[in-house]
Deep mutational scan, measured.
Amino acid sequence: MKHYEVEILDAKTREKLCFLDKVEPHATIAEIKNLFTKTHPQWYPARQSLRLDPKGKSLKDEDVLQKLPVGTTATLYFRDLGAQISWVTVFLTEYAGPLFIYLLFYFRVPFIYGHKYDFTSSRHTVVHLACICHSFHYIKRLLETLFVHRFSHGTMPLRNIFKNCTYYWGFAAWMAYYINHPLYTPPTYGAQQVKLALAIFVICQLGNFSIHMALRDLRPAGSKTRKIPYPTKNPFTWLFLLVSCPNYTYEVGSWIGFAIMTQCLPVALFSLVGFTQMTIWAKGKHRSYLKEFRDYPPLRMPIIPFLL
C-alpha cells in the first residue's frame, strides 16, 4: 500500500511549517490536523484551516487524503483561524445574560430607577406577564442548547462571544429598562391586545421548539449528516411545506408577539434587527439546500412563505 507525503505551508508566506512522512492514504484531514498539532501545539485542530490552494476553501475534517486531487506528495496550505471557543459555551453565555439582566430590572434592584423604587413591584399585569415570557424564552434556549441542538461545527472564533453578548445583553437591558420602569405605560388596547400578543408568542414558541426537535431527529448524534427536513405529524412542522427555516419564522413571530404585548420600541427594534439577521441566515441555508439536494422542494422560500 502506497503512503503519502504531506507538506504543510503557510498560506500567506509559503513557508514550510511541517512535513509529514508515510501518511496513510485513508487518513482524514482531521487526522492530519492532529499530526500537525504534534509539531505545532500552539495551533490545536480547531484553529487550523487546511486547504489545497492558499486562497481556496477550507477542507472538511472528514475529507480523505486519497480522494483529494493531489499526488502522493501533497501540499496543503495552513491558515490560523485564531483562538476558538465551543458553540455550546457561546450559546449558554449569550442566553444566560439576558435572563439575569432582565430580572435585575424586573425586581428593580438599587441604583436603576431611584431609591424610592428599590425592590418595588409594578401594578401592571402586563409587566409581570412580559417577565414570565422573556424568562421562559431564554430558559427554553438554554435547555435546547444543552439537550436538543446538535452542532455541525464544534467551535467558533473567540471574538464572537463578545459580539454576541453585546447584542443580546445590550438589547435585554434596553428593553427591560423601559418595560419595568415605574412610569411604564400599558398597551393602548389593554387586555385584548395583551391576550392576542400572548397567543402569538406561545404559538410561536411551541412552533420553534417543534422545529428544533424535528431538525434534531434528522441528524444522528456525533454526525454531520444533512438531510432535507420534511413536515412530521406535528402540525407545527407543517411550515416546512413553505419555508426552509421555519425555526427562524417562529422565532421572529415570538418577538413580534412580545413587541405587541409590551408596546415597547426597543423590543420592536430588537425584532427588526433579529429578523434582518435571521433572513440572512435563512437565505444562506436555503441556497445550501438547493445546491446540495437536486430534489429539494421548489415551493419553499427561505423564511416567509411566498415572499422571502
Rank of each mutant, 00 (worst) to 15 (best):
residue 209 F to G: 00
residue 139 I to A: 08
residue 76 L to F: 14
residue 64 V to D: 13
residue 60 K to S: 12
residue 237 T to P: 07
residue 162 F to P: 04
residue 125 T to M: 11
residue 15 E to D: 11
residue 14 R to M: 08
residue 27 A to T: 08
residue 265 L to V: 13
residue 8 I to H: 01
residue 101 I to E: 05
residue 150 R to P: 01
residue 22 K to F: 07
residue 147 F to L: 10
residue 134 H to V: 02
residue 150 R to S: 05
residue 147 F to Y: 03
residue 37 T to R: 01
residue 218 L to W: 15
residue 179 I to G: 01
residue 212 H to E: 14
residue 82 G to A: 12
residue 184 Y to D: 04
residue 174 W to E: 02
residue 69 P to A: 08
residue 282 A to V: 04
residue 149 H to G: 01
residue 99 L to A: 13
residue 242 L to W: 11
residue 187 P to R: 07
residue 223 S to V: 00
residue 197 A to P: 11
residue 110 P to A: 08
residue 246 P to A: 13
residue 109 V to G: 12
residue 175 M to E: 04
residue 279 T to P: 07
residue 101 I to C: 07
residue 209 F to N: 06
residue 195 K to N: 09
residue 95 Y to P: 00
residue 18 C to D: 09
residue 290 L to W: 12
residue 186 P to A: 15
residue 131 C to E: 00
residue 25 P to F: 13
residue 155 T to L: 12
residue 114 G to R: 10
residue 33 K to A: 12
residue 83 A to T: 10
residue 99 L to W: 10
residue 151 F to S: 11
residue 51 R to E: 09
residue 37 T to Q: 04
residue 176 A to N: 14
residue 107 F to A: 15
residue 176 A to T: 06
residue 253 G to C: 02
residue 264 C to L: 09
residue 235 P to V: 00
residue 239 L to H: 08
residue 135 S to I: 04
residue 176 A to G: 11
residue 300 R to P: 04
residue 92 L to T: 12
residue 178 Y to R: 03
residue 212 H to D: 03
residue 174 W to D: 02
residue 169 W to S: 04
residue 31 E to D: 07
residue 138 Y to T: 14
residue 187 P to F: 06
residue 99 L to I: 02
residue 72 T to N: 08
residue 54 P to L: 10
residue 243 V to M: 06
residue 64 V to A: 12
residue 35 L to H: 09
residue 230 Y to I: 15
residue 11 A to S: 11
residue 301 M to T: 12
residue 8 I to M: 10
residue 228 I to M: 06
residue 3 H to F: 12
residue 231 P to D: 01
residue 16 K to S: 07
residue 295 D to G: 11
residue 26 H to G: 02
residue 120 T to R: 07
residue 118 D to Y: 06
residue 284 G to S: 07
residue 80 D to H: 05
residue 23 V to M: 06
residue 6 V to E: 14
residue 229 P to A: 12
residue 155 T to S: 12
residue 283 K to R: 10
residue 235 P to Q: 15
residue 166 T to A: 11
residue 103 L to W: 08
residue 136 F to S: 10
residue 125 T to R: 11
residue 185 T to P: 08
residue 24 E to R: 14
residue 242 L to D: 05
residue 241 L to S: 15
residue 121 S to H: 04
residue 228 I to N: 12
residue 106 Y to C: 04
residue 261 M to E: 04
residue 193 Q to L: 03
residue 212 H to K: 03
residue 50 L to V: 08
residue 128 H to C: 04
residue 52 L to M: 09
residue 86 S to A: 15
residue 234 N to S: 08
residue 103 L to N: 08
residue 185 T to S: 07
residue 58 S to A: 12
residue 234 N to D: 09
residue 127 V to W: 04
residue 220 P to F: 00
residue 242 L to K: 09
residue 68 L to E: 15
residue 50 L to G: 05
residue 236 F to C: 12
residue 224 K to E: 11
residue 70 V to S: 13
residue 98 P to I: 14
residue 129 L to F: 11
residue 160 N to K: 05
residue 135 S to E: 04
residue 18 C to H: 13
residue 212 H to C: 15
residue 254 S to R: 07
residue 236 F to L: 07
residue 24 E to W: 11
residue 196 L to A: 07
residue 248 Y to S: 12
residue 287 R to S: 06
residue 242 L to M: 06
residue 196 L to H: 07
residue 41 P to T: 03
residue 131 C to R: 05
residue 3 H to G: 08
residue 296 Y to S: 11
residue 17 L to A: 02
residue 32 I to K: 09
residue 192 Q to E: 13
residue 192 Q to H: 10
residue 60 K to I: 06
residue 273 V to H: 14
residue 160 N to Y: 13
